[in-house]
Structure formats: C-alpha cells, structure tokens
Simulated scan of single mutants.
Amino acid sequence: MHPARLVARLSLAIGFLAFAGVSHSAPLPADHPCGELVKKYLTCVVNQEWKTAANLLQASSLERKQKETIAIIKTAPTMSEEQAMLERFGVKEIRDLEKLSPQEFYILDREAWHKRINAAAEVTKRKQETLKIEVLGLVEEKDKGYVHATVRTSQETLTDRIEELFLISFVKQGDSWTISPEMKDRPIITPLDGKSEETPKAK
C-alpha cells in the first residue's frame, strides 16, 4: 500500500477512535445538581459538620473504610499497639467500632482526626470565614452513570492562603447523587463473568 494512503487511513482510524471516546462523556451545565452538592460537601468538611457530610457520601465506601480500619486494628503486632489505635477513636474494644453504622464510624473517625490535629479555634474560624469554592467543570460518563467535578478551593489561616484542586466523583443511586470518595484513588475491577464488582485496597 502506498505510504500516503496508509497514513491517511491511520489518521482516519485514530480520528474515529478519538470521536468514539469523547461520545461517552459530556460536559454538564453549571446548574447540574452535583455542582451544588460538591459545594455543600466541601463546606461541611471545613465546618466539621460530619453528620451532613456522611449523608452525602456513598454508603458502600464508608462501609469499606470501616471494615479496613477494623481489620488493621485486629492485625496490630501487639496488644499495646491495638489499644493505642483504639484510643485514637476514644473506644476501649474493637466491638465498639464494629457496632457502629458506617456513617457513625465516619463521624467518629473525622472527629478523632481533628482532635489529634488540635487546631487553634481562631484558625478554624478563619478558614471557615474565608472559604471559597469554585466548580471549574462537571463532566458526565454517560455509559457508567458517573459525574466528575473539578473544584478549586481557597481558604486562609492567620498566616497563609491555602488553595487546593479536587476531583470529586458522583454516582447516581436512585434519584440521588452521592459522592464516591475512592474513585480517583482505587481501580474499579469488574470480573469478566459479571458476577460481582470489587474495589481493592489502594496501594
């Protein structure tokens, strides 16, 4: 085959594949429900409103985090290390964590983490007062039922301005959208027999 004709055919094929890939995703308008939800979630995180934040997160992700944390505590090398881990959550025994709902565990985990940080009250207040959230874009993966939001946040401490860029993914559950916090950190593995779907631990 003539080289020029081969190049033309390859270009056509590549163009078709690129078009096909784009057709599975589409930008969404700024007033899509996920735009407001991501602002609500990030505001809850900065304001430490963990109960509200928990209800915006995918229940299966919270359950997985709870099980993984409990498994880590159970495999602690020594009893003293296990006890130290439990003390971080303010409990005495593993069953105290096992009896919690995934949402309750999330709340306890976040409260324990912020207690360890022990940030000054005036710093937390300043961050809450100066929080700015800008949704840079929303894109939908139509064939998977996902929406991904790219978000820029800005907040100030008493000495610095902190800017962060987030990719936050949503999954449709019934009539509601919930945040899937692990999607950007964990591969989604679906067995070829289609029997089940598993998201393994992040490395």
Rank of each mutant, 00 (worst) to 15 (best):
C44Y: 10
G21Q: 06
G174W: 02
I14L: 15
E82P: 04
F16G: 12
V45S: 03
I72R: 10
S80F: 04
K144L: 15
S169G: 10
A13Q: 05
T190L: 11
R64W: 06
S154H: 08
E164K: 11
V7H: 09
A26T: 13
K67I: 05
L192G: 02
T52D: 12
Q58F: 14
F16A: 15
L138F: 09
I188A: 11
P181F: 07
V147W: 09
A59H: 15
F105I: 06
L100W: 10
S11G: 04
K184T: 14
P187I: 14
E164P: 06
T153D: 10
H24M: 14
S180R: 08
A71I: 01
D31R: 13
I133T: 13
N47L: 12
I73G: 01
V123N: 04
R126A: 07
L6C: 09
D175W: 02
G137D: 08
R116M: 13
R186I: 08
S80A: 10
K195S: 15
I70A: 08
A13M: 10
S61E: 10
K125M: 09
I70K: 07
P187E: 13
K203H: 03
A54C: 07
A119V: 04
P200R: 05
I179N: 04
K39E: 13
E122L: 06
S80Q: 14
I73D: 04
L100T: 00
F105V: 00
D109V: 01
G90M: 06
P77M: 01
R88G: 01
A121P: 07
P181S: 08
A71M: 01
S196C: 11
T199A: 06
P102M: 11
E98I: 00
R9T: 05
G15Y: 04
I14T: 06
K67E: 14
T69I: 00
A8C: 05
T178A: 12
M79F: 03
W50H: 00
D193E: 07
Q173I: 14
A71H: 02
S60K: 15
L165F: 12
L10E: 10
Q128N: 15
D109I: 05
W177V: 10
